[in-house]
Design a protein around this nucleic acid. Structure first.
Length: 721
DNA sequence: GTTCTAGAAC
DNA sequence: GTTCTAGAAC
């Protein structure tokens, strides 16, 4: 279609009164921009020129410069213009807005903000599109464009902005513009935004700590009935932020997360929204002063409205959780919402690209994110999340204040993607719940770390002030009693007490330690193995081997030293190197024999920094941790934190330094529960246990070094060795 | 080390 | 009401 054909000739007597209007249409492909223009021009008595980049090049792709040239020429002739291109970001719109200065025009925006799904389906179905955007590629293009969408604001230079979220809104806008005669003027301001529900709005303002800031409703038009739609709230908030120029959440740990698995992985949104709300409800109490924001890029997002209504029913604290419409990679610059942590709906290979949130976040973060991620893990299992610290060189860090990305992988319900669960929502819901739990637990861990670091001086109080501050000392002693058996009356801190006890014995610290009778079972067996034939599996001169009576994994042996006065790792010196080597060799022999029976097992050999049972014993334990006896955090962390000292390292340290390092700080036992393979965090033991049964990630690099793990490594003949 | 259990958390 | 944790007793 020739541009000139679209001009509607004005009546001569109206010519001199006319102030031209530049209507900048804003909308994705398929949002109905061309239809809007056609319909306005069909009914309007005002002379309009449609400036369409798709047609301006006469068959070739048009340019923005051509559009600007036609626009200028039309305005010069006092013709109003409809800019029919996507204009989805501020930059794209800027040059057209500038035209108002040269031609004394009013500049309006009409935002065709229809659901992405509708735009996509229209784009996919249509044939003969002027811009050749149709068929399968349209979906990807529309999605990509919508990710970069920036809604227009008055301060860009518009005198009027009309938002249309549905067909009815669009028709009203067509009627408004179609009815304009040459001299008519439409009122200025923002239109199509509905007055928000007061409670909801207050909730969001409370969330943003701006309770005292009144909400300015620019529109002077009739305001429709209150709506529950989140998007309206956000627009107001966004505008307020832009004007104030500050970021009210700076300093408050905030996690922005997308809905997991509901887009590409086609998870049922009704079920997903329920899981989101339930896990949010669970975690808002666990994240200290942290906050959660569910983000979706599209206005009218179904998942957001479902979550929002469910969260309202459950009365979830709106100062802790909100839904937000916006680009997750531009929350601070685009929405005034500073989120220091953002979640990425990752793919299992943790690779950049692929579209959606993953592509957007990797794009925004630059190559730093990929490098940092690769260092941390090579893959992710559904239901897991992993935290990656973002280097300060990343634009996402410098521009948006994002310090951490948490990659999270949900279940797949899309038969066109690998490992589809084929509508098995029993597993799907479980995995999705795990994914959110793991995500929030990772975030809680970041919050705790931040709290600790900001609290550092206070936490160190006992170093200088413990002698003056009895409460501080007693509290610490109480906490450490289980490890050191320090009497309550001892007014030294635990470390001092331990050193005191360790140095006062004649042949080792253990002589001063009161081992309970229950704690002496291994000692008794080691000293008299013949009396405990049923308990031991091997008796040698220097060591005895027994099955742990409460095994914490499929295979869990204890190799016990038979030397007197060698109660624990703290007693070990260079003179014990031979017995330590013997213990190691015997443990390896048993691990190898277990591997012959079951090649899927992986073994680790090591000591507890502070054992509960008397007599130095080496744990030989398979890394499945599949045991009903593994019940609490201490059980887990005693084998999966630095509290567990690998036999190889102990031997090396004694050889080189004369004594082993003891990681006996209480913090190791109280550490968060993290998977021993993928290092994802889990809120409690049952969740962790259900996770480790399915986690197939490789072990972390540090465990794969220095022969810390014993596992099947096929030789040239394919046999395990 | 475990078991028991109160009470916190859900 | 049920699940989970953590402290005391052994």
């Amino acid at each position: 279609m020739d541009v000139d054909d679209e001009i509607i000739k004005p009546k001569a007597d109206e010519e001199k009164d006319r102030k031209p209007i530049v209507v900048i249409l804003v909308g994705a492909p398929g949002s109905g921009k061309s239809t809007f223009c056609d319909q306005v021009m069909r009914v309007s008595t005002r002379p309009w020129v449609r400036v369409c980049q798709d047609t301006i090049g006469n068959g070739k792709a048009g340019t923005k410069a051509q559009c600007l040239a036609i626009s200028s020429a039309s305005l010069k002739d006092k013709k109003s213009i409809l800019i029919d291109r996507c204009n989805l970001d501020k930059e794209q719109r800027a040059d057209f807005i500038k035209l108002k200065d040269s031609y004394l025009a009013d500049v309006h925006a009409v935002v065709l903000d229809l659901p992405a799904k509708l735009c996509i389906s229209r784009s996919v179905k249509r044939t003969g599109h002027e811009g050749n955007l149709q068929g399968g590629k349209a979906a990807a293009v529309v999605n990509r464009m919508l990710q970069k969408k920036e809604l227009p604001k008055l301060n860009e230079g518009f005198t009027r902005i009309t938002f249309c979220q549905n067909e009815k809104d669009v028709q009203e806008a067509i009627n408004a513009y179609g009815a304009l005669s040459s001299s008519d003027v439409l009122p200025s301001g923002i239109f199509g935004e509905k007055k928000t529900d007061t409670k909801v709005q207050l909730g969001i303002m409370k969330f943003l700590k701006r309770v005292d800031a009144p909400i300015k409703v620019t529109s002077d038009e009739k305001i429709p009935e209150p709506s529950n739609e989140t998007i309206k709230d956000n627009r107001h908030v966004n505008e307020g932020q832009e004007q104030s120029g500050n970021h009210p959440l700076d300093g408050v740990p905030t996690l922005a997360f997308p809905s997991i698995s509901t887009a590409d992985f086609q998870f049922n949104i009704e079920k997903a929204s329920e899981i989101i709300v339930e896990t949010v409800e669970e975690f808002v109490k666990k994240i200290g002063n942290g906050r959660l924001v569910l983000v979706d890029i599209s206005h009218g997002s179904k998942i957001l409205s479902l979550v929002k209504s469910k969260a309202a029913i459950k009365k979830i604290d709106s100062t802790k959780f909100i839904t937000f419409v916006g680009d997750i990679t531009k929350l601070r610059s685009g929405g005034g919402l500073h989120c220091n942590v953002i979640a990425n709906a990752a793919n299992w290979r943790l690779k950049p690209g692929g579209g959606g949130v993953n592509a957007a976040i990797y794009d925004a973060a630059g190559p730093d994110l990929d490098i940092a991620t690769k260092k941390k893990a090579g893959s992710l299992v559904p239901g897991n999340a992993i935290t990656v610290s973002l280097p300060s060189t990343s634009p996402l860090y410098s521009k948006q204040g994002v310090t951490h990305i948490i990659h999270v992988l949900g279940p797949n319900m899309n038969p066109k993607r690998p490992n589809c669960l084929k509508d098995d929502y029993n597993i799907g819901c479980k995995v999705l719940r795990e994914a959110y739990s793991s995500l929030f637990e990772n975030f809680a861990s970041i919050v705790r770390t931040q709290e600790k670091s900001s609290d550092h001086e206070f936490s160190n109080c006992d170093k200088k002030a413990r002698k003056e501050d009895g409460a501080c000392v007693n509290e610490k002693n109480k906490k450490l009693k289980g490890f050191t058996d320090v009497p309550e009356s001892n007014n030294l801190c635990s470390v001092d007490a331990k050193q005191n006890a360790a140095s006062s014995g004649k042949t080792g610290g253990s002589l001063n330690k009161d081992w309970g009778s229950w704690a002496q079972a291994i000692y008794r067996i080691a000293m008299n193995p013949d009396k405990h034939r049923n308990d031991v599996v091997e008796i040698l001169d220097d060591v005895v081997v027994l099955n742990d009576i409460y095994p914490k994994a499929q295979k869990h042996l204890l190799v016990v030293a038979r030397a007197e006065g060698l109660d624990r790792l703290a007693d070990v010196t260079q003179e014990h190197l031979p017995i330590l080597r013997t213990m190691h060799d015997v443990g390896m022999k048993w691990a190898h024999s277990f591997l012959q029976e079951n090649q899927s097992l992986v073994f680790r050999l090591g000591y507890h920094s502070v054992p509960s049972m008397r007599q130095l014993h080496l744990h030989v334990i398979s890394q499945d941790f599949n045991s009903k006896h593994l019940k609490n955090k201490k059980h887990w962390n005693s084998f999966n934190s630095p509290f567990f000292r690998d036999s190889v390292d102990v031997i090396q340290e004694i050889t080189e330094e004369g004594k082993p390092t003891l990681n006996d700080d209480e913090k190791f036992i109280s550490m968060e529960l993290r998977c021993n393979r993928c290092r994802s965090a889990h809120p409690n033991i049952p969740r962790l246990k259900s996770h480790i049964t399915i986690c197939k990630s490789p072990f972390p690099a540090n465990l794969l070094q220095n022969n810390r793990l014993l596992q099947k490594t096929p030789d040239k003949d394919g046999n395990a060795c």
